[in-house]
Each structure stands twice: as structure tokens, then as C-alpha cells.
Design a protein around this nucleic acid. Sequence first.
DNA 1: GCTTGATTTGCATACGTTTGCAAACCGGGC
DNA 2: GCCCGGTTTGCAAACGTATGCAAATCAAGC
Lengths: 342, 342
Amino acid sequence: MSMTGRITAQDVAKLAGVSQSAVSRVFTPGASVAAATAAKVRAAATALGYRPNSLARAMITGKSRIIGLVVAHLDNQFYPVAIEKLSVALQAKGYHVLLFMASNTEGEMERLMEDLLAYQVDGIITASVAISNDVTRRCSDAGIPLVMFNRGQPESGLSAITSANALGGRKIARLLVAGGHRRIAHISGWQEASTGRDRARGLVEGLAEAGLAPHAMIDGLFNRDTAAEVARQMMLGPTPPDAIFVGNDHMAFAVIDALRAMGLRVPEDVSIVGYDDVPMAAWGAYDLTTVRQPMMRMVEATVETLIAQIDDPTRAAQSLEIDAPLILRGSARRPEDDNAGL
Amino acid sequence: MSMTGRITAQDVAKLAGVSQSAVSRVFTPGASVAAATAAKVRAAATALGYRPNSLARAMITGKSRIIGLVVAHLDNQFYPVAIEKLSVALQAKGYHVLLFMASNTEGEMERLMEDLLAYQVDGIITASVAISNDVTRRCSDAGIPLVMFNRGQPESGLSAITSANALGGRKIARLLVAGGHRRIAHISGWQEASTGRDRARGLVEGLAEAGLAPHAMIDGLFNRDTAAEVARQMMLGPTPPDAIFVGNDHMAFAVIDALRAMGLRVPEDVSIVGYDDVPMAAWGAYDLTTVRQPMMRMVEATVETLIAQIDDPTRAAQSLEIDAPLILRGSARRPEDDNAGL
DNA sequence: GCTTGATTTGCATACGTTTGCAAACCGGGC
DNA sequence: GCCCGGTTTGCAAACGTATGCAAATCAAGC
């Protein structure tokens, strides 16, 4: 029943018999305080249950230690995992996460920028959302660093962390070719997104190495229903593919479900390969061959890049592509020769 | 290249030829401003790209409009979905979400409380994390309302929103009994958690109605690996169960994978029922019979309860149990008589 | 005991708002 | 022309902290 309204540094100061500045200094790492006073102050502080008000501190210092995290698509398991890791990594660095859900619709990000700026965030991380030039400008105007996670935007001058998507696509092409497939189709990721485009490009390039071209290539929009329907149409066509590279695991699961519902077997009738290696890909029901986006390294790179830019605002933006290894499981026929240069 | 450091209400005031207070009033709904001044101010504000500083506002008003959201277990699909809905609902009410990941370990929540208090959150939502008395006390001391989502704590005097877990367990018992099962086992949710306990209790009560007792009942700790191992042991025992109620969908998927890996068929050899109805439960690979936690209603109730307590601090805590319907799919044998009173 | 230099402390101001209060303004009625 | 009620406005004081600066304290050296 302590009915203590708000406890301020003033209250602690009074109890400890020192000035408010002294209290402040005790809670400011690296400030000049005698050991004796520090002890008195800490005692008084814990007695009263005092904690410095981060908001007031933010006003003075101009640093809120808040990072805005903008996310869409929480139904794709890749993003919850990303949020978790990002959030833990930032907490470890003394930052806090203000979370925003963005539908990927026109003007949504602009609206969110209002809130992000109003809360004086020190930096912004966007996970798979498109950034308009307007947003870019307002960030640089306000001097707020922004890092894009799992999406690139070459011309934007913004930092971006992705896996090596094009190379990943190429690896998949080689795997499927080595597996003896010849009619290799692609249900691509959303072609408005760099990840979707790069993976598709990689596949095309990889097939070209073997003198092949994609048997079919249709945009699945990173959407389960769309992907499933596209897969169905492909298999009902006159010359169905013998392998499908699906633009991410999330859609690949839907494709596998759809094929099985048609009575087709994976990988006997069709090989399926995904991209991401979300935890679910390893589950027995799918056992999905895929390309692993190295989550921890991507998260670390994102956090490091962001904090580096916060600490040194003159620092240039950087784009990083992290190598993504092939993960062989049961949903795609394996090459006879296991050393097929994969 | 506007190189505008920070734009304050002062700057806008100067440009608009009014006082800083006038600017403030324009951005404070319900304050007294002449239409003409409002127009001038708004013009100046957009010209400069001004937005009121939420942190400064929070200092004055004592309301940060920030809600602390504490979450664990993002690997269980139920929680990402919850985060998404909660976050959208709060955004719609003009609140913002400060996200914290909590491992469910000793003292973790206490550590987080420091940060939550420091950031002057207006309220706290915890999703499936245990609350110690210490935390409870500090919240009420600081006058910060807390609502537990999907977890109850009867003695704590805190608000809690859950589905009717015990009743849900009973519904499952009736379903399985009506389906002709007699050796009904339970891989329970973590027994330290109210949800785990209530569902288990419901099952026991429901079986008792039919003069039965659980064939076996082992804690799966809401953990995939544990649940899978428990399932394996059960099936290898001398008298394996003919049905298993698994404490949540997340574990149920693992159980189904494990059983299939043993060459058992679901539901021909064993019926499996989960709890939650996460999106994945409807996917072809599992087609899981389960109990649906009505996410939207739970989220709405949570947000409403929290905001009501923020607006009226004298308001008493309330616990709400929302009815959870049975969802019949393919993982459990259906009763002959579809109207078996379910 | 006094000087000196280093360390510790308090004073006062600033951060960008909101808001009570009183002054200024406005239009209308006599 | 003046007075009066109601609006609109500006002034100034908060909110809780950090921090430059100058005063105070301290320990040491002679």
C-alpha cells in the first residue's frame, strides 16, 4: 500500500541528503561520484524503489534508446523468429523495441513514420516492407538510421541485410539439375520485392548454366493460397513440371499440401524446394529441402549496422549479403553424386 | 538536404507568428483555438515537417500511451498471431507497443519490470508468462494496470483473459468418448501454467462423466521435443492409448510427426486432439482436430480491460473466460452420431 | 599549517511539451 | 460609445532528468 505517486530523483536526493544532480550522476555510468555518496544514494533509491525516468532522460540526451521495428506477415514463421532474435539482440545492447505492424499497402509506412518520429526513435528496422522515397527522405532529414531486414532496395541509399538470394536461387537450380530434373518450374516470391526477384533471377541464371530455361514461372506473391492455386494449375497443365522451386518455405508448405491433396507424391512425382529454412521446414510432415537464411548472422549484422549508424551518423549505409547454404532434406530428389559441386 | 536539426513547437510558432502555446493547442484535441490560427499553425507545421514530441508530451501528461507487451515462446504460432492482433488493436486505440521477450526463467520478469517502469508504460500485457508477487506489488505500487493474456492467476488479483480451458478439456473428453475411445491419454500443457492445469482438469472431469479415468497423463511442458518423446513412450508401453489429447496444437504437431515416424496412422491407430486452433492446424499435413481459442474476442477483451483500467485506476481487476468451440477435423475419429451433444 | 591540484558537489539551466490563469480580444446590445 | 459575456491568446510554471560551470572539499606534499 505504498501509495507512492511518482518517485523522482528529487525524493531520493532528499532522503540521501544530497543534491538531485548527485542522484543523477549515480545512475549515469561514467560520471564523477564519490564511492560514499554513491552508496548512500543507492541505498535511498532502493528504499524508495526509484528508477530513473527514461523519458525524461531521453529528452535531455536526445537519445531515446528506442528502436522502431516495423513488420508485416507474421503468418510466415520466418518473421516471428526474426522478431524474437532482433528483439533479444537489441535488449542485450540496452535498446528497446517499439513494434509496429504494417500491412504492405499504399501509404501505410508513411503513416507509421509519423508515430516513429513522434516517439523519437533512435533507429528503425523494417522487415519486408517497402520503403518509399518519401520515407527515405524523412528519415535522413530527421537523421534517423534505417536498416532493411531481408529486403534490399539498391537505389535507396539505405542499409540492407539479406542473404545471398540470387546465389541461393542458383544453388537450387544446380541441385535440381543434378537431381536429373528437366522441367523445373518456379512459383516465385512477390516480384515487387527484391528477395522475390533475386531468387528468381538466380534460378534462371543457374538453369542457364545447364542450358535450360524455367519450365514455368509464376508469381506466388508470398501468399499461401495463391501459391497453392498456381501449383495446382501447373500440375494440371499439359506438361507438368517435375520440380518446383517455391519462393519461400511458407508458400512451399501450401504447395506440398495442395499436391498431396491431388494425390501426388513429393518428391516421387514432383520435387519441391523452398527458401528460408524456417523451423517448421524440419518437421516430419514436410521435411522440406530448402536454402537456409542464416538468421543469427543476419540479425547480428542488422543490429550492428544500425547501432554503428546511430553512434556515427556520418557513417555510410551498407548493404550486406550473407551466404545461404542449401539444406538437403526429403522433399526433393537428391543427386546420385552427392558431390555434384553443391 | 533540409538539415533541420530538431523542429520544435517554438519554430512553428515563430513561422506562424503565434505563441508556442497556440501551437500546442492546435495539436491537442479539444483545446480552444480559433479556426484561423489553427490554419496558420497547421500550414507552418507541415511546411517545417513538425510533429509533437511524444516523449515531452508524456512527461507533462503523465501518460506515455505506451503499452508494454511481454511475450515468450514465439515458436508456438499462437503467439505471433496474438502479438499481431494485439498490436493492431492497440495501434487503433492510439497506443503503442513496447515489446519484450521473456524467457520463462526465474527473475526474468522482475528484470523486465525495471525497463517497463523506466519507460513509464501506461499498462502491461503479458502473454503466457508467470507473474510473481513481487511483480504484482510493484505494478500496483506504480499504479500500472496489468492484464494477463491466455493465462490466469486466481489469487493474484490481476486481470486475466483466457478461453474456457476447463470446459474445453471437457468437450474434448466427450468427443473422444463419443468416438468410441476408451484408453484416452493426455500429454498435458505445462502444469505450472493455469492453461495447462485447467485443460487437464477439464479432461479428467469430462472422462469422469463417462465413468472413465485418463489412461495416462504426463506433462509435455508445452515443448515439442518433450511431447514427442512422451508420445513415443506411451505408444511403446504395454497398453498404448487409442487417443491422445495434447495440451496445445504446437505439441500436437510434434506428436503427430513422432507417431507417423513410428509407422502409426492418425487417426486410424490413434486419435489426436490439440488445443488452440492455430492457423497451421487447418493445413493439409496435420488437419488437426482441436479447440479454437477465439483469438479476436480474447484480444478485444484484453485491450478493453486494459484500457478501462488505465482510464479508471480504481476499477477492479477482472478475469474473463471466453467460450472455445470444438473444431472437428481429420486427426480424431468422429463420433458415429454427429449430434452426440457436442 | 598552508598551498596546490585533483576530485567531488551543488546550482542553475535546458530539453519540448501541456495547462492554469489572467490579459486581450471580439461582437453585440443598449 | 461603452459595457459585458464569451472566445482566444500569451505568459509562465511545471514534468524529471542531464550537465557545464564554479564552489567546495579532500589528500598530499612541503
